[in-house]
Design a protein around this nucleic acid. Structure first.
Lengths: 187, 187
DNA sequence: GCGGCAAGTCAACATGTGTTTACCTGCTGT
DNA sequence: ACAGCAGGTAAACACATGTTGACTTGCCGC
């Protein structure tokens, strides 16, 4: 194997995101991640100081990913974007992983703060793009957060339980119901 | 402490449900549970053969609980029932725990099967009570499962992230948005 | 070619966890 | 009152896991 620090660093991050998103923090071991990246366990502590540090880094990439995706998105796009992320059409599993990471707590204070901050920003954006005043009032915010929570629940259920037809529904099949669901942000 | 087997058994079950529901399976230790019940760790293996056995028992109580709650419930009750469970008005935290346990996987095959079976039955019931044929077609089932997933996501978000106003919203405040959300089962 | 350094490995350590075995202890029927 | 037994405890074991420090190996500039 050719030696390239930043390359294996990225490989570690990718594998870690994969496992953290699907099995949660406590269940995935650093040895799983290292093996998945074809590398020794010690490199995790070396590159990310600790398992927690690695998790935080994963969350950090998720935050920037979502901020980029939210650029110039208007309300009617939300359901489509959600459907796309939720089904993650075999091309880019990172989309689903991003959603899932938002619900995987590590017990780490910093990580939880990052997650909370992002979710707060997302729900606020969703509320105003649905027509709420700026800053949105409490009820508008609540409705937006309910929809967000719904999306996270769907992501989790698709990833963890294989309940048919939800588990294998295609993007096209999810689109209409998701439109209806997202529309509930509007009073 | 007075000695009463079935009483301490129930205490263990209650504490286990509490911890499993809030922190998940991997994160809660048998010593946490035993301490919470004011009892020695060895009793868990004694009464439930293993940590997995204890978890299965928790899930089993949840299944019977939900089956009892579903008796004679019609579609218009669903949102109210959900709001009630989700907010768990300080009286009976077991309601929220029931919802949360449905999303806490232990990696145990039997437990996952139980969960899947219950969710399947619930979504089917929800679909037909929303007006679908019996047995419901795939699309109706999908919509029902999406609503179910939404409910689980909300439960999880209220329990794990403290995102305001969702985290502390009252039953009354949740009722209207939940009505809208549940109504999306209907095409 | 080769010395030096970054990239990577190896083995050990400390600790937390589920489980078991042998051992107490208080209630109960007689 | 007391023997017997179910209810409960204590300590140890086996093992998995996160982390560390010493060691090895491949690459790059001279």
């Amino acid at each position: 194997m050719t030696r390239n620090a930043s390359q294996t660093r990225h490989r570690l991050l990718a594998v870690a995101r994969h496992h953290f998103a699907r099995q949660g923090y406590a269940t995935t071991t650093v040895r799983d991640i290292a093996d998945g990246a074809g590398v020794n366990v010690a490199l995790i502590s070396r590159y990310f100081t600790s398992k927690e540090g690695l998790f935080e880094e994963c969350l950090r990439t998720t935050v920037t990913d979502f901020k980029a995706a939210a650029q110039g998105m208007v309300f009617t796009d939300v359901a489509e974007a959600l459907a796309h992320r939720l089904t993650s059409p075999t091309g880019d599993p990172a989309l689903l992983e991003g959603l899932l990471l938002l619900i995987r707590s590590s017990g780490d204070e910093r990580a939880d703060t990052m997650r909370r901050t992002l979710l707060c920003a997302m729900s606020s954006r969703l509320a105003v793009s649905a027509g709420a005043a700026e800053p949105p009032d409490t009820e508008a915010l609540l409705r937006a957060q309910l929809v967000l929570a719904a999306a996270l629940g769907i992501a989790m259920m698709r990833a963890n339980l294989d309940l048919e037809p939800l588990a294998t529904a295609t993007e096209a099949e999810m689109l209409n119901p998701l439109h209806a669901l997202v529309a509930t942000v509007i009073p």
